[in-house]
């Protein structure tokens, strides 16, 4: 693999992590969706770079699908949903932004710590890629925990998925095509189902704040 490719891939991967930080930092719903679209775009480019450098044609398909679905379709759907049910533009974090950023930083460090034994065993590239993608996944999960709106939770989940894809691309240069397609299909269905539920929740509870969903408990 050429030096340039590696640098490019690394750079794009870093961009994905950066956007993850931005998602934590932003306080506006619309911006949040834009940043997510940006992250997906970076991921799509990363896929294309991997495809170019390895020459696996099926990764181009992955790249195309990623950009199409995650950078274009899903943000549009989310926008539409927000328009339809008139979501307030405020993100409503339960952990305030500065602390959130600190925690996100901590998660990134944790990810490096976890991947560190791989560096020692000489798997430097793998270690870096693992650390980056693990950090994105953890930050996505953190977004889900620390944001109240149902839509932010969906976005958090999608950020996790992005981290996942990045891992798949940079660690193993994609997965067998059938698996990739299946995963895409599942994600689409999942988002659709969640969309349906978001509508229903909004209709039933007249809010999207999931912290009201606390009737079932012991």
């Amino acid at each position: 693999m050429a030096e340039l490719d590696v640098n490019l891939i690394d750079g794009l991967a870093a961009l994905v992590l950066l956007t993850a930080f931005l998602i934590v930092a932003t306080g506006r719903m619309r911006t949040l969706v834009r940043v997510f679209a940006l992250q997906s775009l970076a991921l799509g480019l990363l896929a294309a770079a991997v495809a170019y450098s390895t020459g696996y044609w099926h990764i181009y398909i992955v790249a195309a699908l990623t950009i199409l679905l995650k950078a274009l379709v899903i943000p549009r759907i989310i926008d539409r949903v927000m328009d339809r049910i008139q979501v307030a533009n405020d993100v409503e974090p339960s952990v305030r932004t500065p602390s959130s950023l600190l925690i996100a930083g901590g998660l990134a460090i944790l990810a490096y710590y976890v991947a560190e034994p791989l560096i020692q065993s000489g798997e430097t590239i793998t270690a870096g890629a693992l650390a980056l993608s693990l950090a994105v996944v953890l930050i996505g999960l953190f977004v889900m925990i620390s944001r109240k709106k149902a839509i932010t939770q969906v976005i958090g989940l999608l950020v996790m998925e992005n981290g996942l894809f990045m891992a798949a691309l940079s660690l193993s240069y994609g997965m067998p095509l059938i698996v990739e397609l299946g995963v895409f299909f599942d994600i689409m269905v999942a988002v659709l189902i969640m969309g349906v539920f978001v509508f229903r929740i909004n209709r039933t509870f007249d809010t999207l704040d999931t912290s009201f969903l606390r009737r079932l408990r012991d």
Binding site: S94, I145, K148, Q153, T210, L213, R214, R215, R217
Partner: peptide
């Protein structure tokens, strides 16, 4: 621990 809050539940996984 069983508060009913999704965020809390996710935090446990986390």
């Amino acid at each position: 621990i069983q508060t009913g809050s999704v965020q809390r539940y996710l935090a446990y996984i986390f």
